[in-house]
Amino acid sequence: MKSILDSLYLPYLSQIGFSPAADCDSGGGIRYELDPALGTGSVWVYPVDHLFAITINDLAFRCDVSLQYDQPSFLNVGIYEEVADGSPTGGEESLTGYVGYEHEYRMRFPRSVPVRSVGINLMPAYYKGILPGRFAEEIRALPEICSMLNGSFAIPEAAAALRQIRSYRPSPKVANMYYESKVLEIVSFLMQWGLDRKAHLASAHRADGDLDSLEAVREHIRRNYARQQALDALARLACMSPSALTSGFKRAYGMTMTEYAQSVRIEKSKDLLLNSGKGIKEVAQAVGYGKHASFTELFKRMTGLTPKEFRRITAPDRSS
């Protein structure tokens, strides 16, 4: 059986100008550099046999580039930096899923449009064979769940795990253990989200229009997490009364709108603590908390750690 590197990556990487970098990555993965004549950046891959792989993309082409290859069956889940008019939108990221099947795959990369993402790719031997056998048959629903992730849904825990993959490099001796643990963590978050969503939809006796309205409110909160959200304004967005919106949101998602906004803020703050040089007070302000103490209190309540403790443990090079 072909490895995931041979079946999924090598057929297209060499086709569009990537070759293995000379340096050795400390995380045990393989970095492929883009031909400078075609663009800048790289693709980093950590493959595990014919089962799964981690991928981090950070690149941009100088010209329009197209690829065409025989794609195998696989699942992909990742976070992608959103781009508008050819430019990044300032760190906004979307969680998306993709269900690949065996066919001739074609894709075009526009010139000067950055591609920045981190994701996991799972092969059928893993998500159809190993995972259901080790855990539960319900995991066979993973392709259906992945197909629902079109960038409009937020699963903060899965997004946070992907960002941790991007920011942390384990030593080669423990890399396999670390990356499989992160893959299992992400799959568990996806499965819980999918099962919860299915249960909510089955038990919620409401019109499709109401569900669409609730999704619109949730997406608005996700994108505007740093701002205070007035209930009346959200109700107008949903075309519902404030009381109907409040009760409907709680029934659909198992949490209040305030709790959801808090969860998004905390996940964003984790990303800033891991990947920025901002001080803790600056992080608090960036996610919408004017009072440093209020942010610290909520962060510890939701994570069990203060922001300073979280940064010291997960990003010691940024702690002070």
Results as ranks from 00 to 15, higher is better:
251 R>V: 10
215 E>R: 05
267 E>L: 03
225 Y>P: 10
268 K>E: 03
252 A>E: 12
262 Q>M: 15
253 Y>P: 13
208 D>V: 10
255 M>V: 06
248 G>P: 07
263 S>F: 03
224 N>E: 11
233 A>Y: 05
249 F>S: 07
237 L>Q: 08
269 S>T: 05
275 N>G: 06
260 Y>Q: 11
264 V>K: 03
196 D>E: 13
210 D>W: 00
226 A>P: 01
254 G>Y: 09
255 M>R: 08
193 W>Q: 01
270 K>W: 06
232 D>T: 11
233 A>C: 10
250 K>R: 15
267 E>G: 13
278 K>G: 00
265 R>M: 11
236 R>N: 13
246 T>W: 00
240 M>T: 00
270 K>G: 05
256 T>D: 15
268 K>R: 11
248 G>E: 04
257 M>C: 14
234 L>P: 12
208 D>M: 06
215 E>V: 01
246 T>F: 01
195 L>F: 06
256 T>R: 07
228 Q>T: 08
262 Q>A: 12
239 C>Q: 15
253 Y>F: 15
211 L>G: 04
218 R>I: 01
209 G>N: 06
193 W>K: 02
242 P>F: 12
272 L>C: 06
248 G>A: 09
225 Y>K: 07
238 A>S: 10
195 L>R: 12
239 C>G: 14
241 S>I: 00
213 S>D: 07
195 L>P: 02
269 S>L: 08
275 N>C: 12
249 F>T: 02
201 L>A: 11
277 G>V: 00
273 L>Q: 02
253 Y>A: 14
214 L>K: 10
214 L>Q: 02
206 R>A: 14
242 P>T: 08
205 H>T: 03
231 L>D: 07
270 K>C: 11
243 S>L: 14
206 R>I: 10
246 T>V: 00
220 H>L: 05
276 S>Y: 03
246 T>G: 04
200 H>D: 05
267 E>R: 05
194 G>A: 07
278 K>A: 11
253 Y>E: 12
246 T>L: 08
208 D>C: 03
267 E>C: 09
244 A>E: 14
269 S>Y: 04
208 D>T: 08
213 S>R: 07
255 M>H: 05
194 G>C: 03
203 S>P: 00
227 R>T: 05
254 G>N: 05
248 G>C: 09
196 D>R: 08
199 A>V: 04
221 I>W: 09
247 S>L: 14
272 L>S: 02
220 H>K: 05
261 A>V: 05
259 E>A: 15
269 S>P: 10
229 Q>T: 00
278 K>Q: 11
268 K>N: 03
241 S>H: 13
250 K>Q: 15
219 E>C: 01
240 M>N: 07
259 E>R: 13
196 D>H: 09
244 A>C: 06
204 A>I: 00
223 R>S: 12
201 L>N: 11
216 A>F: 01
223 R>L: 15
271 D>T: 14
